[in-house]
Amino acid sequence: MIKIFTALLFFCLIFPAKGQQVKLISLTELDKRLEGGKDTTYIINFWATWCAPCLKELPHFEKLRKEHGKEKLKILLVSVDFQSKLNSVKTLSKRLNLKNEVFLLNEKNQQEYIDKIDKNWSGALPATLLLNKSKTRGEFYEKEFTYSELLRTYETFK
């Protein structure tokens, strides 16, 4: 019994300390991450700590991961905050208890990177890219999803 308790205590001590990892990622690195990934469907959500509708939407991506994460689905949450805000992104990810992979986009030139991500994106946040690697299909959404919209969109994609 004591052993189990000690193990649990150890577990509790290790995990909160680890916290939420937030890595800087360039567009080239993001492309590599997608190419090298073993999953079929990728949902890449672009958000920012200052964007209220984004923060409202993030839990939907967490719920989708919880309910469908075993289906060869990977969700990447890519913040477009300034690079100087890395700590704010980390703190917020921790506070929202985000389990999806969180990144901070390591690009400065919006004029360039917005077009590279999708030429139909005007730059409004939140925005979400859905990719299906096996069908080489991609669709970009410059909007805030409700959970049911997100689920429906994912179902047509996987």
Binding site: C51, P53, Q111, I114, S122, G123, A124, L125, P126, K143
Partner: peptide, 8 residues
Amino acid sequence: TKAIGCTV
């Protein structure tokens, strides 16, 4: 040009 902003 493209720039980030808050969705309408």
